[in-house]
């Protein structure tokens, strides 16, 4: 323990005591919860038919509570705005990727893209979905970035931004169109629900993947109008 740490000993003891109280209290609170609680599983199951997908989690995410997901895509995009607004950080030293990394990426990236596609598709009826797929896509992007690949400057302007906002954009457009068609916000007609969800998920997967990769890169691409 450092000198400073010793000086702070009474404080840390107090802290530990407080945290102990907190843990105990929270633990007690958790344990007193009713041991049987179906939560919302029943209504979810009851409405699964109308939701357009058969995976309940996806149904909740993109139908029952799709509004949360919409905002959450906003959060992700916002984080990107934020990272880009923090003026460019000095670039990490560019070094040519070693042979292992290079090989691995050549091998993995196509597979990762494929896996992402599968996850997106599978999300409708089994665990999976846009976020999972997007993450895998992002992993591919990260690998590429690590090998020194950068987006061509021709695409780093509006096209890049377009693809970054695609998820949110499609979501919003769908919502607006649905409203204009006389429904409520994100009220999918049951017959189109599955297709719409897939559309949204596809756009979201692309955006999530690109956004996460862009967040990894940190700095904003300099070029482009």
């Amino acid at each position: 323990m450092t000198e400073r740490g010793k000086k702070q000993l009474p404080f840390r003891l107090l802290l530990v005591a407080l945290l102990f109280v907190l843990t105990a209290g929270l633990g007690y609170a958790v344990l007193t919860l009713p041991s049987q609680a179906p939560g919302l599983s029943n209504p979810v199951v009851a409405n699964l038919e109308a939701s357009g997908v058969s995976n309940p989690v996806t149904a909740v995410l993109l139908n029952f509570r799709a509004y949360d997901t919409l905002l959450e895509l906003g959060v992700l995009l916002l984080a990107l705005f934020g990272v880009w607004s923090l003026a460019a950080v000095p670039e990490c030293r560019e070094s040519p990727p070693g042979p292992v990394l290079d090989g691995l990426s050549r091998l993995l990236v196509p597979w990762l893209i494929l896996v992402a596609g599968y996850l997106l598709w599978a999300g409708a009826h089994a665990p999976g979905g846009a976020f999972q797929a997007g993450s895998v896509l992002a992993a591919a992007g990260v690998l590429l970035l690590l090998t020194g690949w950068r987006l061509d400057t021709r695409f780093s302007g509006l096209p890049l931004r377009m693809s970054l906002v695609a998820g949110l954009g499609v979501f919003v457009v769908v919502a607006v169109v649905l409203i204009l068609m006389g429904g409520r916000l994100l009220e999918y007609p049951p017959s189109f629900a599955g297709a719409l969800i897939l559309l949204i998920e596809a756009a979201a997967t692309l955006s999530i993947g690109m956004t996460l990769a862009a967040l990894f890169l940190g700095a904003r691409p300099e070029a482009g109008p």
Binding site: Q8, F11, L14, L15, L18, L19, V21, L22, G25
Partner: peptide
């Protein structure tokens, strides 16, 4: 920071 957050913790506990 440390004191402030501890205080926060304390306040939470006191509230409960």
């Amino acid at each position: 920071w440390a004191y402030a957050v501890t205080l926060f913790l304390l306040l939470g506990i006191v509230v409960v």
